[in-house]
Amino acid sequence: MSDPVPMSEDWAVYQGVEDGLRAYLRDADLALDAIAGVINLADVQAFTCERVATTRSWGESLWQEVALTDGQRLILWHGDDEESDEAPGSLMFTSSVRTVPLTAIVDQGLRTRYSVEPNGMRSLHAVMLYLATQTPERSLTELTDEAGTKTVQFVETYRFSKSVTDGGRGQMQRLTQFGRALSRFSGQGS
């Protein structure tokens, strides 16, 4: 696990993924190495980032996420602080990268919420992006009223959100840009 570094810069002010990740992520080098293993960084069309700090029973933890597209794939990188399974009390860092073809995304929703001021003016308050695939994630068998059973399938989904209090205006605008890019590229039948 890398030593903590100040993470005060906003990634949204950077158009390039490398600069944005270096400004925002604690483990930018690990993220960039993993991402560069599956995509040429110059091919990145749009990206979004997230990080969440939490306190766990074993100490402070940082979860980091990068989602980007090259126009053909959704590429996800996650970095997470964890406690070791083999040696409780020891810390581990997990880095993972995943690629999903945009053709696998079958449903997308981009929701924008605005605060309404007393004078009627609207200001951007939150942006939420929802992506669903056909990839089964899990299933659940339920009893029915007719004493039979039915199986409900749940598909893999991805959710991204930014708000006034979580990222601010710049990150909300960049999440909107990311969602629109995914929609535009997936509509091209990659």
Results as ranks from 00 to 15, higher is better:
V52D: 15
A53R: 12
A53Q: 07
A53C: 13
T54A: 08
T54N: 06
T54S: 08
T55Y: 04
R56T: 10
R56Y: 04
R56I: 11
S57E: 04
W58F: 06
E60V: 06
S61Q: 02
S61N: 01
Q64F: 14
E65T: 12
D70V: 03
G71Y: 08
G71P: 02
R73S: 06
R73M: 15
I75A: 05
I75K: 08
W77N: 00
H78E: 09
G79N: 14
E83G: 00
E86I: 05
E86T: 11
E86Y: 02
S90M: 11
L91R: 04
L91F: 06
M92F: 07
T94I: 13
T94E: 09
S95F: 12
S96V: 14
V97M: 02
R98V: 04
T99S: 03
V100Y: 05
L102M: 07
I105H: 15
V106D: 11
V106N: 07
D107F: 09
L110S: 05
L110H: 02
R111A: 13
R113S: 03
R113G: 01
R113F: 08
R113W: 04
S115L: 10
S115G: 08
V116L: 12
V116H: 15
E117R: 08
E117V: 15
N119C: 08
G120P: 08
M121L: 09
R122M: 10
L124I: 07
M128S: 04
M128C: 15
L129T: 04
L129H: 02
Y130T: 11
Y130K: 15
L131K: 08
L131I: 00
A132Q: 08
A132I: 09
T133V: 02
Q134T: 06
P136G: 11
R138E: 14
S139P: 00
S139I: 10
S139C: 03
S139A: 08
L140P: 08
L140F: 11
T141Q: 03
L143W: 08
L143I: 12
T144I: 12
T144Y: 10
D145S: 09
E146S: 05
A147E: 09
G148H: 02
G148R: 15
T149D: 05
K150R: 12
T151R: 14
T151C: 03
T151Y: 01
V152A: 00
Q153A: 01
V155S: 07
E156F: 00
